[in-house]
């Protein structure tokens, strides 16, 4: 697809804010940090068809940090999987858009996630499935840097490398914050790139994961690893709450935080104004 990825990132960010703002509370920080990546994947790289969401051989995205559901839903709505009005039902009783991704509820969601570490293994399973089907699909997956503390991540990392799953491209949303504080203080995961390299993965370190050009270049680079017999990890250095200064300033407290509709509308206006 040929489109303005910066504008789409803004749309995803604004629609995420609108949905969470309408509800009054939600996982703002780790949703806002992903807007650029989701724009690049859904609008440029992924071989998908919103009119045929279960298309065999399609690329898949499994967001293992399932709490970024609101950003994924904003991206799916913008891509045409469903009407944008649905975003306003986020987390309301009976909604099809729950806090954490659910493949049985939401069209376009490839796997249910939310219990950290598990979605990453599921993505490895899907990558293995794609290899067995020989369908040429690329399996994308997103993990959080806090999530990286889960032992299951490293079990899956080992398996994916051992089985040479070079159709798997993973992203770490390296926003450096988790619920209880800075990742470096809670339980440091650094040196992160070296860990993934030691596990046998190609590693691409992106200086600014909220710069859409850098993300675009990194994903293009990652796709070159398709025949390397190694899975690829793209570390995106992002800002938790990116795009809204007061949310960013909340730091670790922005993981799941309150926001009024007025605050959301003001933030959206500021983002649009910048555009």
């Amino acid at each position: 697809m040929d489109c303005d990825l910066k504008a789409i990132s803004r749309d995803i960010r604004c629609d995420t804010l609108a949905a969470i703002g309408h509800l009054g509370v939600g996982h703002l920080g780790g949703s806002l940090s992903l807007a650029e990546l989701l724009a690049v994947l859904y609008f440029k790289e992924m071989h998908i068809d919103p009119k045929n969401p279960k298309m065999p051989g399609r690329d898949r995205l499994i967001c293992s940090k399932g709490h970024a559901g609101p950003a994924i839903y904003a991206a799916l709505a913008n891509r045409g999987y469903f009407e944008k009005e649905l975003l306003m039902t986020l987390n309301q009783g009976g909604t099809r858009l729950p806090s954490h991704c659910d493949s049985n509820l939401t069209v376009g969601i490839d796997m249910t996630t939310g219990s950290l570490g598990q979605g990453f293994s599921c993505a490895v399973g899907a990558a293995l499935g794609s290899k067995l089907e020989e369908d040429g699909a690329t399996i994308y997956t997103i993990i959080g840097d806090g999530e990286t503390q889960e032992g299951q991540i490293w079990e899956a990392a080992m398996f994916a490398a051992a089985k040479k799953l070079d159709n798997l491209i993973a992203f770490t949303d390296r926003n450096k914050l988790q619920l209880d504080g800075p990742v470096s203080q809670v339980n440091d995961i650094s040196p992160l790139a070296e860990k993934w390299a030691a596990f046998g993965w190609n590693v691409i370190d992106v200086e600014d994961g909220n710069d859409v050009d850098q993300v675009e270049a990194a994903v293009a680079h990652a796709k070159l690893g398709r025949d390397s017999e190694r899975p690829t990890m793209v570390i995106l250095n992002t800002r938790k709450g990116c795009g809204v200064p007061w949310i960013e300033e909340l730091g670790a407290a922005n993981h799941n935080t309150n926001i009024t509709e007025e605050q959301a509308l003001a933030a959206i206006a500021a983002i649009r104004g910048e555009g």
Partner: peptide, 23 residues
């Protein structure tokens, strides 16, 4: 047939991923 090594939780979720792929 795939041996995941001594990593039961990974085995369970990989199986779920394979199931999501029609296996």
């Amino acid at each position: 047939m795939f041996d995941c090594g001594i990593a039961e939780q990974n085995m369970a979720s990989i199986a779920a991923g394979l199931s999501s792929y029609g296996f």
